[in-house]
């Protein structure tokens, strides 16, 4: 790690000024919790001359608030731990609380921020190791294609086959989330427009411009929403597949459904066909829910070693839907001493 200047801005707007192109630093990096930024510094994937620390900004106010128009506001610096236990989210945006609470480990959740979680970089083992000059680092090949791809994408044409790592992003997608910005002319971008596929730009996964800083997020409340992730290991592991579902249910019938998957494609992967199939189904119609979940597999093009993720995705979608409906999902026995 090379020496750098640590900048402690007093506001997001000030941070945006430091970050703006043509500012005082050649390669400034914005850091919130720093979980992902520090990993990059240690592996030598980033060598900033300035680290702009926004971690404590807004920490004195509430992490989550209800706005006058009924929407919910989440501060950029809210920690995953705060989101997981927030009463407003637990009541009215369950999928956010559940997805935040399932991410990473308790220690990481205490530090990791909402904005940082959305913008963290992929965990692809070729990207993360300096000796692989892969597409994402400006190299000429994706090593996963003929290499080790058990944890790579089952959707998308490439040429890069990362999966989007964020738990929070798909939750935001199914609640029509908005990402609020400072530092440029626009003041927000829809969560749905935040990310792009690799064929639209490989060096970065998101559509923010240099100098744009996230101030907060807003989203639509949806009490009937749910999350499910499948992890091989229950501590300190990444989901092999996850699903976020939000539903509007009237008189026992699903009227609206929005479904988004994570860890299966280079971006949070919307599943509109599943949503359409859920519409009109009775909340108690297990067969219809299962049939809708099967549609999640449509269009999947697994690589050599990741075909199993298709089944995990289908199971995640079905279980997230059941969870949104407050129904029981298959779960292991509980054994306590």
């Amino acid at each position: 790690m090379n020496p750098f200047v640590l900048v402690q801005p007093r506001s997001h707007a000030q941070a945006a000024k430091v970050m703006a192109a043509g500012g005082s630093y050649r390669l400034p990096v914005l850091k919130a919790g720093g979980i992902d930024v520090l990993d990059h510094l240690k592996e030598g994937l980033l060598s900033p001359d300035a680290v702009v620390n926004v971690r404590r900004l807004g920490a004195e106010g509430p992490a989550v608030t209800r706005l006058a128009d009924g929407s919910i506001r989440i501060e950029a610096g809210a920690t995953l731990a705060q989101l997981a236990s927030d009463p407003i989210l637990l009541a009215d945006a369950t999928v956010v609380a559940q997805s935040a609470g399932s991410a990473a480990t308790p220690a990481i959740r205490n530090i990791a921020s909402a904005a940082g979680n959305l913008l963290q970089r992929p965990r692809c083992w070729y990207y993360r190791h300096a000796q692989f000059e892969c597409l994402k680092k400006g190299g000429s090949m994706c090593f996963a294609v003929d290499g080790e791809n058990a944890h790579h994408a089952i959707f998308g044409p490439g040429p890069c086959h990362i999966v989007h790592p964020s738990n929070l992003a798909p939750a935001l997608m199914v609640l029509d989330g908005q990402v609020h910005l400072t530092g440029s002319k626009r003041d927000r971008i829809a969560a749905a427009d935040l990310f792009h596929m690799p064929d639209k730009g490989i060096l970065s996964e998101h559509n923010l411009e240099q100098g744009e800083v996230i101030t907060h997020l807003t989203l639509r409340p949806r009490p009937t929403s749910g999350f499910h992730a499948v992890k091989a290991k229950q501590s300190f592991d990444w989901p092999s597949a996850l699903a976020c579902v939000s539903l509007r249910v009237e008189e026992g019938v699903i009227r609206e459904a929005s479904v988004c998957a994570g860890a299966v494609a280079p971006v949070p992967w919307m599943l509109p066909r599943v949503g359409a199939a859920l519409k009109g189904a009775k909340a108690t119609d297990d067969a219809a829910i299962a049939a809708a979940a099967e549609l999640a597999a449509e269009g999947a093009k697994p690589m050599r070693d990741n075909g199993y993720k298709v089944a995990l995705l289908v199971a995640s979608v079905r279980r997230a839907t059941l969870r949104a409906l407050g129904r029981e999902t298959p779960s292991f026995r509980e054994i306590r001493p």
Binding site: R123, G147, E148, S235, F236
Partner: peptide, 18 residues
């Protein structure tokens, strides 16, 4: 399989029970 490099020389993808 292509380069012979260990792709998981860490405690993230070299998984140990937690």
């Amino acid at each position: 399989r292509q380069t012979g490099a260990m792709v998981n020389p860490n405690l993230e993808w070299y998984k140990i029970a937690g």
